[in-house]
């Protein structure tokens, strides 16, 4: 299990750190990698029809050194999982993980007794921030997941002053 790095910065910047959080939330840079069919929906979310760039999250980086969001899109095999951990360690902090699709959440259709090749969920070894259910999730679901992550970063939708869509069910953004 890879632990979340919770070390607070040595110097607290007060209101400035909140401004930085707002900037981070609206310029999430995901890493370009996919593990299975969910990656197709992730690509659709990044392409012109759904256009993740509207939310600042469309800058898919080809290197983990340049990205701060890992979208685990697809089935994690036991062969691939050590590589994913390496990629996670290569990302600079602060960094976040989105588990996209049922396979990355809990193993999905591969969670059965006697199964020998698949890791049942990204949260078995990574600190996951947002879960996006679906098999595969629609691009809108991934967009909602990323908006949810933005709200986590700004500690509430109300303080995410740049948010493109207002929340309806829970306008205060309190969990």
């Amino acid at each position: 299990m890879v632990e979340r790095q919770e070390t607070p910065p040595p110097v607290q910047l007060g209101i400035l750190s909140q401004i930085l959080d707002l900037c981070r939330a609206n310029s999430l840079w995901p890493m370009t990698f996919g593990l299975a069919c969910c990656a197709i929906e992730m690509m659709a979310a990044g392409a012109s029809r759904f256009d993740l760039d509207r939310f600042g999250a469309g800058v898919f980086r080809p290197s983990p050194r340049q990205s701060d969001v890992m979208i685990v899109a697809g089935t994690i095999s036991k062969k691939m999982a050590p590589t994913i951990i390496t990629l996670y360690h290569q990302m600079p902090a602060p960094k976040w993980v989105v588990a996209m699709g049922n396979c990355a959440i809990s193993g999905g259709p591969f969670a059965y007794e006697g199964q020998y090749a698949i890791v049942n969920g990204a949260d078995r070894f990574l600190p996951v921030d947002v879960y996006v259910p679906g098999c595969p999730p629609r691009p809108e679901a991934l967009i909602q997941g990323l908006l949810e992550l933005e709200d986590q970063l700004t500690k509430g939708a109300k303080r995410n002053y740049l948010r493109r869509f207002q929340r309806h069910a829970n306008p205060d953004g309190k969990a």
Partner: peptide, 15 residues
């Protein structure tokens, strides 16, 4: 025989 513990279970037990 499926169901027995095999190699590659490095992440089990820790969680």
């Amino acid at each position: 025989k499926p169901g027995a513990r095999h190699g590659g279970d490095w992440f089990e037990g820790e969680t």
